[in-house]
Design a protein around this nucleic acid. Structure first.
Lengths: 227, 227
DNA sequence: TCTTGTCGAATTGTTCAACGATCCTTACGT
DNA sequence: ACGTAAGGATCGTTGAACAATTCGACAAGA
């Protein structure tokens, strides 16, 4: 009995250590970057930002290192940190990774709860699309793929996917027409979900490959000229 | 003509930025950890190490952040950094990731050069085994799997695999009998290579699954009691 | 006009010293 | 045995300082 309580409480443990100015600053910057407040390619001045956030330069630098490792910032020696501006090769590589991670995911027999999470994301995307909220479709779509990858049941893969999607968001910010990119995939998500539910592994994998190939091409043609 | 020269030189660009004390310190510490000089669980004192390496505490802290993100160090607030001591769940998760990354790799049709790299690693392992050099077998084995994963053709996956293997090395350091763990896999590597060369994808994938499952079990039973 | 050398301002890289906050240990009292 | 208080050690963070590097501008030379 007591063991159960201990095991339950142990899950809250990570929230305890949750502090450190540098990490909190990193959280803020991460959010600002992903919402587009800081645009790809923009330089982040140590002096300006440390003053704006009220932390010392040293602490801010620690935050920069963290985000650099997540590939959201780029560190150029003696020149400062810049919001990462992914190249076309980066986009290709990101989709290469997605094919591996999501491809492995759809071959698993999903648990009921995991399936519910995916279904929920599909529904959210459909609801947002019905209201012409393409920003909302985008975030629901991200949740869909995040939930999809979590079928692998690996915390490390979940974390990698989180970072990957954050990096992809940098690419989205350079595009001007979010609707053209997100609209076609609302229906595809629904179709993919059906294939997963009915455990047609090979069909799901094939459908996913086509899905990602389409998305990658679409993204690259919209992205290439703007560099 | 000039364009060609420019393009060629541009390839050397990454080598330029290659400095920064913090990164060099991180390189040193990473090496020390992977060679077992710093043992898993050990605390790394900021004061002691900064003095020993002749760098300031602030710079050292930046290095710590880098290695923390690679999961080689663990940061406990107000208590300092420790060499990571992976849990049994961590080991399971690492193998979960390996199954995904290596499983995707063996399903690809390999290029000639990539295949050569793998074959070379197999041979190195066999040579080292013939001389009872089990440390050598271990590093050759790591090269084998690194080369295997590189079949995916993704820089990001290569990088992830590098980190994953570095983390696994932490586990190896806690074990006392490296031979018992590495010996069975010399032959298996050879067999897996044959399946890949002949492009028997499904067979290779099945063989790999068995391979990794075996390795994981072996590692965990040798690891569990020592915690 | 185009290239090259030089200078100065601006910013980063790194160090140092300091102080409060937090943790761990020890000793104490009940 | 248990809770508590005191003390030392170490981390977290700051602020200032200086060296190193980059960048733009401007002048000198071909």
């Amino acid at each position: 009995m007591v063991d159960n309580v201990v095991a339950d409480l142990a899950q809250d443990r990570p929230r305890l250590g949750r502090s450190s100015t540098a990490e909190r600053v990193a959280d803020i910057l991460r959010e600002r970057i992903s919402e587009g407040f800081f645009q790809p390619g923009q330089r982040l001045s140590e002096e300006f930002i440390s003053e704006a956030l009220g932390v010392s330069r040293n602490t801010l630098r620690e935050s920069f290192r963290l985000l650099g490792h997540e590939r959201l910032l780029e560190h150029r020696l003696n020149r400062g940190v810049f919001v990462r501006l992914p190249s076309v090769e980066d986009v290709s590589d990101l989709y290469r990774v997605r094919r591996v991670l999501e491809g492995a995911a759809v071959r698993r027999t999903p648990s009921k709860e995991a399936l519910d999470l995916i279904a929920e994301a599909v529904l959210d995307a459909e609801r947002a699309a019905a209201q012409d909220d393409w920003q909302g479709v985008g975030t629901a779509n991200i949740r869909f793929h995040q939930a999809l990858v979590s079928l692998n049941g690996s915390p490390r893969i979940d974390e990698a996917m989180r970072q990957l999607l954050a990096e992809l968001r940098l690419v989205f910010h350079v595009m001007e027409n979010p609707r053209a990119f997100h609209e076609p995939f609302v229906d595809r998500n629904r179709a993919l979900l059906a294939l997963i539910e009915s455990e047609q592994h090979d069909e799901a994998a094939a459908y996913l490959d086509d899905y990602l190939g389409h998305a990658e091409r679409l993204l690259i043609v919209a992205y290439e000229p703007s560099r």
